[in-house]
């Protein structure tokens, strides 16, 4: 296992897995406790539109994803809150529109899009140093925002109505949280791709919830779980020559089922 680290692509893959674990460990906790898994899935899938946009404009597709997913996250939040369209309906519509736009953009782009599949299902073995720098800076932004707003996020997750009654700007805080999810999606795209992102955003957090009743504890635990399980998945995929993104997701799923069975086995 150690000798494999002499390859740069393998070192980059390991660093990418660890950086992804930090983002999804922190933001995933809010996704799970605030029960916004569906909107997170919507943001992740709509992000595909940004990949298409990147191809169309001839820039790094990941750079297309950042503005695109933030705009779609904000639209889902604003439409769901301020119009009479129910939030889940708005999410469903923007989810498919984002993906459809992505496909149109790719079709309109000149030439062939060889690594499109990688953006959909992950391509952790082709992570470049530039990707790592981007992941690092997005992680820094996510950590800074969560550090500054941790109490507010806790309040809107626990009881948004009450937070509003206390005079907190709950809608703006919620939109900020959605932007963090959008940024996390960007961090995770290289590791598991837009389709599988939701696994990393939910499974480590929901597993860690069984062991602690503090949000900060949940975050640390889910970062660790995410890192361990992602590395396990990566190792299995190398050992058995399987697609890494999908293997990581399956490892997470199996780990969740096992932990649920042993922790809550009585009520299974």
């Amino acid at each position: 296992m150690i000798e494999i680290l002499q390859y740069e692509f393998m070192r980059n893959a390991l660093i990418a897995a660890l950086l992804a674990s930090i983002a999804c460990g922190i933001v995933g906790v809010y996704v799970v406790v605030k029960r916004i898994v569906f909107i997170s899935g919507g943001i992740a899938h709509a992000a595909f539109g940004g990949i298409g946009l990147g191809y169309f404009l001839g820039v790094d597709p990941v750079l297309g994803v950042i503005p695109f997913s933030i705009v779609s996250a904000l639209s889902m939040g604003v439409i769901g809150r301020r119009t009479k369209i129910p939030e889940d309906t708005a999410i469903g519509i923007l989810w498919v529109m984002g993906m459809a736009l992505g496909i149109i953009f790719v079709a309109l782009s000149p030439g062939y899009a060889p690594d499109l599949f990688g953006y959909l299902f992950g391509s952790i073995l082709t992570v470049h140093t530039s990707d790592i720098i981007l992941m690092l800076s997005l992680n820094a932004a996510i950590i800074a925002v969560v550090f500054l707003f941790q109490r507010e996020f806790q309040a809107i997750s626990f009881d948004e109505e009450y937070a509003k009654a206390m005079g907190l700007p709950t809608e703006r805080l919620y939109l900020l949280l959605l932007c963090l999810i959008a940024l996390t999606v960007v961090v995770l795209i290289r590791v598991v791709g837009v389709i599988l992102v939701i696994a990393l955003l939910t499974i480590p957090a929901v597993m860690s919830r069984q062991f602690t009743h503090r949000l900060s504890g949940m975050m640390l635990l889910s970062i660790s779980l995410c890192a361990i399980l992602t590395l396990c998945g990566l190792w299995l995929s190398c050992a058995f020559n399987l697609p890494p993104g999908a293997t990581i997701v399956l490892v997470l799923g199996v780990a969740f089922l096992l932990s649920y069975y042993f922790c809550c086995g009585a009520s299974f």
Binding site: V33, R151, Q154, F158, D159, E161, H213, L215
Partner: peptide, 24 residues
Amino acid sequence: PQYSLFDRDFPVSVWDVVLMGRLG
């Protein structure tokens, strides 16, 4: 507020719930 509005599994201690009242 009305009781039904909160998630009983939410990972938070009694102490933190009460402190949250100070946020405003």
